[in-house]
Amino acid sequence: MKILFSPSETKNSGGDKKNFDKNSVIFPELFNKRLEILNSYNNFLKTATVSELEKLFGTKKYDVIEKYKMNIFKNPLLKAIQRYEGVAYDYLDYENLDESSKKYIDENVLIFSNLFGVIKASDQIPDYKLKQGETFENLKIEKFYNESFSDILDKYLEDEDILDLRAGFYEKFYTIKKPYYTMKFIKDGKVVSHFAKAYRGEILKIIAQKKINFFGELLQINIPNLNLIEIKEQGFKKEIVFIIN
């Protein structure tokens, strides 16, 4: 099973002083495609005004802007699953998982970055900042990655069961073309959005601990405080609907 996951706008600093190259990320044969976006990003940082950087980064904090306006290729590298922090990643609690669960995540989770495109949890990436939905040099980043990486992703995922835990925005980076599962969370009759991140992280942790590989195994797991009430089917998508206790 492969699990598609969202990134986070907040990142952990630090890492190893290594060069970011084609061996740092999945699909090295398309590394030059990534470089098109990354080089455009770096070039924009060199010439952007303060107001443009505030919009790009989603902050007006001077120290944050100063930190992130530097050349990202000079930043140390860290495993993607450790680079991101935020609600989903807090609930996943990767650092405190046993080694076999970490290995499962490293090998089976694909994160859809709004700057790097699709990456494996184990890929090595530098620290960066790009607010969700923002762009630079008039690029349509999600369209670029969708067009550039869809064929190779189709082949990579063709023999895998897929659980899509991405937030809606990141679905624009890749459209799944085979049956897959996703999840919805309801509390007091309303769809939960922000706190759904916590459940996505918790569910990913349970899946990793139980080493789930197939849809049938996925539907058998018990998740604390969640009751499965129905599975809605629409085209390729099977949406597992949970009520939060």
Rank of each mutant, 00 (worst) to 15 (best):
L157Y: 01
K210L: 10
I203F: 03
Y145N: 00
I231T: 13
V192C: 12
K205I: 08
N213P: 06
L139K: 14
F173E: 04
R166W: 05
G216Q: 12
K184Y: 05
F185E: 03
R166G: 06
R166H: 04
L165N: 09
I186L: 05
I152D: 02
N146A: 06
N213R: 14
F185S: 04
E233F: 02
F185K: 03
I221L: 07
Y145Q: 02
K140V: 12
Y170M: 11
N225T: 13
D188K: 11
K140N: 15
K143R: 14
F195T: 15
D154R: 02
S148I: 06
I162Y: 03
Q220M: 05
I141T: 13
E147I: 08
L157C: 13
K187R: 14
Y199Q: 07
F214M: 10
Y174H: 04
D154T: 02
E142H: 11
Y174I: 06
G189F: 00
N138F: 08
F144P: 11
D161E: 15
Y156T: 14
D188L: 07
K190N: 13
K178R: 03
K187A: 08
E202D: 08
E171G: 15
T182R: 09
L153C: 05
T175H: 08
K187I: 08
K177H: 08
D154N: 13
R200A: 09
N146R: 08
E202K: 10
Y180N: 03
K211R: 13
N213F: 10
A208M: 06
I229V: 08
M183S: 12
A196N: 07
K177R: 12
